[in-house]
Design a protein around this nucleic acid. Sequence first.
DNA 1: CCAGCAAATGCAATCGATTGCGCTAATATA
DNA 2: TATATTAGCGCAATCGATTGCATTTGCTGG
Lengths: 342, 342
Amino acid sequence: MRKKEKITIHDIALEVGVTASTVSRALNNHPRISATTKKMVLDAAKAINYKPNRIAAALRHGKSKLIGIIVPTINRNFFSSIVRGIEEHANALDYKVMISQSYDDYKKEVATIEALLDARVDGIMVSLGKNTHNFDHFESVLQKGIPLVFFDRTTDKLNVNQVIINDYLSAYQATSHLIEQGYRHIAHFTSHMKIRIYQERLRGYEQALLDNGINFDPRLVVESNMQLDGGQMSTHRLLDNNLGFDAIFSASDYAIVGALQELKRINVKIPQEVGLVGFSNEPFTAFTEPTLSTVDQKAIDMGQSAAALFFEMVNADQRNKPKVKKVLDANLIVRASSKRLQ
Amino acid sequence: MRKKEKITIHDIALEVGVTASTVSRALNNHPRISATTKKMVLDAAKAINYKPNRIAAALRHGKSKLIGIIVPTINRNFFSSIVRGIEEHANALDYKVMISQSYDDYKKEVATIEALLDARVDGIMVSLGKNTHNFDHFESVLQKGIPLVFFDRTTDKLNVNQVIINDYLSAYQATSHLIEQGYRHIAHFTSHMKIRIYQERLRGYEQALLDNGINFDPRLVVESNMQLDGGQMSTHRLLDNNLGFDAIFSASDYAIVGALQELKRINVKIPQEVGLVGFSNEPFTAFTEPTLSTVDQKAIDMGQSAAALFFEMVNADQRNKPKVKKVLDANLIVRASSKRLQ
DNA sequence: CCAGCAAATGCAATCGATTGCGCTAATATA
DNA sequence: TATATTAGCGCAATCGATTGCATTTGCTGG
């Protein structure tokens, strides 16, 4: 079984009796090629099983039809769903997607940007790492005129297109929900205050308290890494300081599970004694006992929006176009952990 | 701020006063280039911030330095961790990774293979979709001589390199563990019997029963989609048929959570009355109440092994090399749901 | 002093597709 | 009928890096 020769447009040209130029134009549906020739070319292409070499095309017109995506970790339902949304939109337009993970490591994020530029991607979509507070590595992307879209973990220090959810409003609604359920001493689990989403969620939390005549007590706001153990530690801090909280609104589902575990360990009744609301709608929030209320971020929508924004940038004339910030609404999902009325 | 001209080896050549050929060879550390010239070229390259155009290189020597990965869904800790393992290994060798999801859809899997071939990837690594029982789409990959590695969800109908865990042994150990804990009527949740991993896990389950003098009762083996609802339905089937089971070994973590929920709903005590063991060590198994015993598949190891296998194929002379099947050992993680002794 | 050889580099083709420009022939316009 | 258009296609350069085959230079040995 000998190796099949690679078949190129020249083979089609030979077959049809025209030149490669004509074949190329025919394949690209160029208006200056007659319908009959086009048909012959298309038929011949199919007949000899021609596959265009995207690499050659990419070299010629500088488009790789590749989009680079960087997320902190793909290993989260939220991020993998966003990627899914992007992929769906991109594949429909004949683009492929390259995924990289920064693991919340600043250096890796920088290196990944480099790698994507090396790979000559046509655009980059990023959700920032937790430790990224310097944005120089994106400047070179912008300078090269490569479309750049941020989603979810974004920054305002850079003038770029971004897609986010209304973190402020979601937090406001989640907190209001707890208040409606009769909780009054609501704690808040959060993370690095340099990160926009945590700032916003805190802001929504505060405003909801304010609007309902509840005093904001900074001691009830606890920072951690937002992982399971972070949630556990934060819970202990609240307990140890004897702050008498009766609910927790956490900016992360992982942290709220940590709280749930610790509270159950000391026989605190959920939701009767303490109400819990998380953030992200990770699948496991439906698996816990009791099930956890949380905020669904409509990840797939976000991915599709981000992709849509990207393709707008690709098609439109980009010079001096003002950058847009697309804000999606999230969805509070009320489950057992915060429902104590009725 | 005008657009920076693209800088190529010709710019370096001009700078140094040699030709592009020499520059190319110098950059690639060709032995016929003098050390001094090499140094000058390297210095100049750095000075003018030269970035090689991988697309051009790819076109010339037919290597894209891209690896395509296809998984059913990235949205599972197991798969995303495998991808992480592959990525780590690949990036270290200056390869990039393109991830695609088949969503367990046969047609999408076929289309994705096409797309990856179109993108001229240098190799493909696949975990098969649940509904893939025809493998013609891989034949064209093999014919083109493109390295192909299967992992986890593999098939023996194709002569390819593969990386799997010892599903048989893991199931044997999990079942044996339940028996040691005093359970005697152990049910098994499984899925499509066309899929290797489920065959193997069933086999291990059976053999463990046999070796411990327990009768194998086919009515205790329940097939489902292995999702949460599948686990719930399977549990009801067991209950409705009044089969008097006292443990479940599930080939999926999702299904075992479904069982856990249903059993708790009717006040069955876990692990006192019924013991549970899942498979995959999804993160949420540590979040449930009680925590779930499960089998850890060492996903990152698997990814790295798969990548290692791939690079062996790339480097070695591939003709007629016998295909290898790399079998990794998994790890039984005993948590509360199956620990009733002591 | 010159053939002989090796080291170092240049020349030019090549990978496959794209595209500006030009050419031919057919059709339209005057 | 002569000129102006236009449709349809070919020529050849191009994208940037690579590489087989020269070519040049320098050195060794006879």
